[in-house]
Every structure is written in structure tokens, then in C-alpha cells.
Design a binder for these strands. Structure first.
Lengths: 133, 133
DNA sequence: TTTAAATACGACTATATTAGTCCAGTTTTA
DNA sequence: TAAAACTGGACTAATATAGTCGTATTTAAA
């Protein structure tokens, strides 16, 4: 329920590892070998991190990834949003289309849960990826 | 990823409703009708809440549920643990059996994630079910 | 200029979790 | 004794997560 997905775990492991390599580029294979992470899956994650401008990459032989910004500038909140897409802690908050919620106007808990969500997000915003090292 | 399950949502809705009824007992049916929650599912949840001593019940005609303690004595943390079972935000923290984790000793993020988990839990501990009303 | 090592991308499958259903009890009151 | 409620377990369905496969593209080096 309040749980990190493998994607987030693998992201943290990879980002930490890449950060430790300073300017060297690091391949997906190196990380997946070292930590027993399925290669194809990790590759997808790194590609996503690249698209989201957290990593930059070189293709071809001797290619690989490096950080495009320091880890203390990436919050856990940002990482989660970018890897998994923005999600709400309850579905009815996920969309403006309130009419889709068949509990709708009799729903009594939306506002307080919304506040809860904001507090959770704020906590995740204060945690930088660099804290996980 | 950081998201309440339907069980938690339904629990909050139900607890709120039951609390509003003061000393009257409330049936699962009444709540499921009012909020369009599947009856069998809600019934299960209320039974669980009873087993966990959050609700008490009377069987038979005119039976139903009532609170066995005030909502400001039930934290969100407690509710989640009791409804869903204690969970860890990453799997490797869930068990002492570290050997099952095939990343194991090369795993670099366990400690910091553990701290994160504690902070999340602390936040959930400060939120009482009564705050969701 | 060809080969090998790497990223890039999309479709697919498998597994796990969550949500919901069904059915057969038991208890209690009118 | 019938109806309204809780009790409990097994089952199915739906969704989300995790992981795989195949193919294309880029690039450095032999």
C-alpha cells in the first residue's frame, strides 16, 4: 500500500551507482550484472530516466549513461512521478472527471484524503535521491 | 505506488459513517447502499475491523456494527496495518530472511530506504482516522 | 567497412496484487 | 420459523507490476 515499486528500487540503485562513477559512463549491463537486476528491465528504466532528463546517454560501443544533474537536485517525489507517472493516493483524486466516481457526491472522505496526499507528497519532496546513499 | 487501496478507502468511509450514528448500530447493507460499495466486499472489511477490535458487532435481526473505540484513537498507520497487514515499502525489509534477497550484500539502498519507511510510518501514525471527517 | 557493443523502442507474456463474487453457514429477533 | 443480519472460506475477475523478446539504430574500433 505504501510501497516502492521495483522500478523505484532499481532506479535508486542505478542512480547511486552511476553517481559513484563520477564522469565515466556506465552501461545498463554493468549495473544489471552487479545487482542481479534483469537487464532488459533496467535498460527500460534508464531510458526513461534519460527521457526525463535525469540521465544523459551515449549510444554505440563505449556508450552508456551518466547523470545529467546531481542527485541532491532530484527529489524522491520527482523520481516517482517521472518513473511511474503522477498518481493519486485515491483514485477519485486522480481525475477532474468526478462524474466517473460513482460514490461521487456522497463521498465523504475526499477532502481529508486530499490533505493527506499533500502531506505525503511534501515528505517525498524533502527527500532527495542523494539521501539514499 | 503511494496509494490507498479500496479497502482503506471503504474503511474510512464506513468508520466515518458509523461514527456519525452515535450509539445506533449500522448494517453493512446500509453503508454499501448509500455509497455504492459492493456489499460482500464491505462486509468482509467490517468483519476484519471487528476482529481487530476497531468495531464490535451484533448478529441477527437488528444487528450491525458500532465503534469499539473513538476514531481519534485509531491512527491511519494502525488501520492500514490491520486491514492490509504490516507491509514494508521495499520487499527486502519485509523479512529477516535476507538471504532470499538476491541483490543482498551488494544492495546499497536498504538502510536509507529503511529510514524513509520509518518517516512515512511516523507520518501515518500522526494521522488519526478522526482527521478524515 | 564490417563487427560488436551499446542504447532505443514497442509489443508481448507472466506474475502478483487487488477487487469483487458466490455460497453456505450461524445468530437473533419479531 | 422466517427474515435480517453477521461469519467465513473459496473462488473469479480485473488491474498493476515485473519481466521478456525482437528489432532497429548508433558508434567505436578492429
Amino acid at each position: 500500500m505504501v510501497k516502492f515499486s521495483k522500478k523505484i528500487e532499481y532506479s535508486l540503485i542505478a542512480l547511486r551507482y552511476i553517481a559513484g562513477a563520477k564522469d565515466e559512463v556506465i552501461t545498463a549491463k554493468e549495473i544489471s550484472n552487479k545487482y542481479n537486476i534483469p537487464h532488459e528491465l533496467l535498460a527500460k528504466i534508464l531510458q526513461k530516466l534519460k527521457k526525463e532528463n535525469i540521465l544523459s546517454s551515449n549510444q554505440g560501443v563505449n556508450g552508456g549513461y551518466k547523470l545529467s544533474k546531481p542527485l541532491n537536485e532530484i527529489s524522491l517525489s520527482e523520481l516517482i512521478d517521472k518513473i511511474e507517472g503522477k498518481t493519486a493516493i485515491v483514485e477519485c483524486l486522480h481525475t477532474d472527471n468526478v462524474s466517473e466516481c460513482f460514490i461521487s457526491d456522497s463521498c465523504s472522505i475526499k477532502d481529508p484524503i486530499n490533505k493527506m496526499q499533500i502531506e505525503l507528497e511534501n515528505l517525498l519532496k524533502t527527500k532527495m535521491v542523494s539521501d539514499f546513499i
